[in-house]
Design a protein around this nucleic acid. Structure first.
Lengths: 209, 209
DNA sequence: CGACTACTAACCCTTAAAGGGGATTTTATC
DNA sequence: GATAAAATCCCCTTTAAGGGTTAGTAGTCG
């Protein structure tokens, strides 16, 4: 059964080259090609493509917004970002929007064919430099040190992020309630926050990504 | 220039098969093979391999610990996890420990060869089902649904995780303080938590992983 | 030794948040 | 048009938390 594909790409030549290339193989059926994704919702609803190839830098509405719309309308459609950009924000916004793959245009179009194959098998095709960046986002957990917290402060902050109340922290560490409060005051001051909720939010947000 | 490789795998037959396979190609040099990673630090320091193939379920010290040690000792060594496990915790612990790839043993050993090639090019080879899970960790629209929060409740919970106080949330949404409190009561009840700090901790922890 | 930091602890006062009620209005949905 | 769900608002009471301040002890370092 051939793979049905829709292309969103505002560069006319590139888009038509892709269409011709894909049509030359019986494995693919191109259901449509567009130079913007203003109608992405309707297109996805009507065509239900297996795969969408999506440029990011589109006029009016970005390919990232388009991706979000398509995945909301039709979660089973796999979206492959196909773009020149490799800055972190575009990568992570795309993936958060639900993209299933991220291929750079500097690679040959044949890599795009591999990506289509991989994505239909449930994979997540990514250009090597993109995949490396994605992995790196799992590996940054060095923030505690940069705020120069003492051992005890780290301990208390950790319990705080587990949802412990001050009273519970005191009990857990076998120190007085007021001592915990003293530490918390110092922690808040070092983290430049004003309360425990902000501290928790800051720590958990910076730990991962 | 051939790729130098070290293997950690406690299944004798599998390990020796891999050694034989890799030695049959001039592209690879096997610097060593071990059935545990107790000496991982020394091995990495002495051999400085380009690539390590790492099983997870090793006796004494897990392959995840081994990966952490190797990456600390020798960050330029690429570590490929080669394992039967595909549960989320092992995947994410491995990646956080610094693994550069994650290949399932159910795939043929030839996929492992592709992975070695890809990882030496700076990529992040992953079996399709693993790559899909990694992507999912960026997406997380399951929380909102699974706890069945209303639109307003989601909005308020989001502001709460930004560190906003109840008063600020009320001001931001142009509704009364008591209204925000009503929503928060419902949110706490739905999330099975007792206060805002726990709610923030729960939301931010579950969003990623 | 004195200066410094981390850890500990306590005090007062104020504000924020939670827990428990109840009530009204809006908005979908059938 | 009835019903249910969501959103809105208000009361009172208790508890948790934050801000400010002070202070003793232990260990480190020049």
């Amino acid at each position: 059964m051939p793979v049905s594909i829709i292309i969103f790409e505002d560069n006319e030549q590139l888009r038509q080259s892709l269409v011709v290339l894909l049509k030359s193989s019986p494995e693919y059926i191109v259901l449509g090609d567009y130079n913007n994704c203003l109608e992405a919702a309707n297109i996805a609803r009507r065509s239900k493509p297996d795969v969408v190839i999506m440029d990011i830098d589109l006029p009016e509405k970005s390919g990232i917004d388009g991706t979000r719309i398509i995945k909301e309308t039709n979660p089973n459609t796999a979206v492959i970002m196909y773009t020149m950009f490799e800055d972190d924000k575009k990568i992570f916004d795309s993936l958060c929007a639900g993209a299933n793959g991220y291929i750079l245009k500097i690679t040959t179009p044949y890599k795009l064919f591999d990506a289509i194959k991989e994505v239909t098998e449930g994979g997540a095709p990514m250009s090597p430099s993109i995949a490396r960046r994605v992995l790196q986002s799992f590996q940054q957990k060095n923030m505690q040190q940069s705020y120069d917290l003492s051992k005890r402060e780290n301990e208390i902050l950790h319990l705080l992020t587990e949802g412990y109340s001050i009273k519970l922290i005191a009990y857990e560490l076998k120190i007085a309630y007021e001592t915990v409060r003293s530490h918390l005051k110092n922690i808040y001051s070092k983290l430049h926050v004003n309360c425990g909720k902000e501290a928790i939010a800051k720590v958990l947000k910076e730990k991962i990504l």
